[in-house]
Design a protein around this nucleic acid. Structure first.
Lengths: 146, 146
DNA sequence: TTTATTTATATCGTTCACGATGCAAATATA
DNA sequence: TATATTTGCATCGTGAACGATATAAATAAA
């Protein structure tokens, strides 16, 4: 049987595979600087706004704190961020960029374009990307409120 | 600085998040039957064609054998598949569905539609899905040959 | 002000992903 | 035929993801 079970008809398998392969494209570029892709995402969040509690970072990335906490500890061990108890709220752990973490932005300046170029193909161009973004955002929003 | 580093401008983060959230939507449906999402993918492959060597399954899912082997061993331990040395080529491990593995197809009959319905939203409808599939397939093909 | 509840983070266990490496069977080459 | 190379699979180590659970601080309720 069954069209519905064919791998070719699965949205999730496509998202899963595209995500893995695109993350792999980041790997050599980030690995050169001792970073993983999820760690790079944390840097994107902190570069936009430094000194955030764990929870804000996790919410921004739609991850749980039990995923983010160990990741941040590894980044702390690498000297990329510091983690310190919040002053007003002692439950919070405030994550801040170190100079090393801040300076990585310059060192990684070419990453977005390099990876961007690697994805460009027939149906994925500067013209079609906004439509793709819109559909993915809708999927994320839809799934995130269930 | 830097538009290029904004989370909102990242294709990879969208794919990564959409993939995670959609996989999470499978979780309760599959967990009921003791399955994980990657194990479900292996079942999709074997339901289409039973008795395949590890390598063929891995290639179909665009995964490495070092990911698939432990996964298959867990499925073997659960009595969902058997693994046996190939007759012509003794290096191969042929993976076959057990009756339990085969019968799971009936028990999971509602999964594709249930998950499919969970994703439907403004910009993702039966009309727009083919276009989305095409773009994701292009991305996968593009990244897979680099 | 006790007590209960919520909130922020962390710990633990299991299952992927995946790079690096190992090993044995099959195939190609000398 | 002996040797080298390739192929198929497995093992190992590390870093996510994530459900379940724990702990302490903050807030609400009694």
């Amino acid at each position: 049987m069954e069209e519905k079970f064919k791998l070719e008809n699965q949205l999730c398998f496509r998202l899963y595979t595209a995500s893995r392969l695109l993350t792999q494209a980041y790997h050599p570029l980030l690995g050169e600087h001792g970073l993983t892709y999820p760690q790079y995402l944390v840097l994107l969040v902190l570069w936009e706004k430094d000194a955030q509690p764990v929870n804000d970072i996790a919410k921004r990335l739609l991850l749980e704190t039990n995923t983010v906490t160990p990741l941040l500890k590894r980044m702390e061990a690498e000297g990329i961020v510091t983690r310190s108890k919040g002053k007003e709220d002692a439950r919070q752990m405030i994550v801040k960029l170190t100079k090393k973490g801040y300076d990585l932005q310059k060192k990684l300046a070419d990453v977005p374009e390099t990876v961007g170029n690697a994805v460009i193909c027939k149906s994925v161009t500067p013209e079609t990307v906004p439509g793709l973004f819109g559909m993915l955002d809708d999927i994320i929003e839809q799934l995130n409120r269930q």
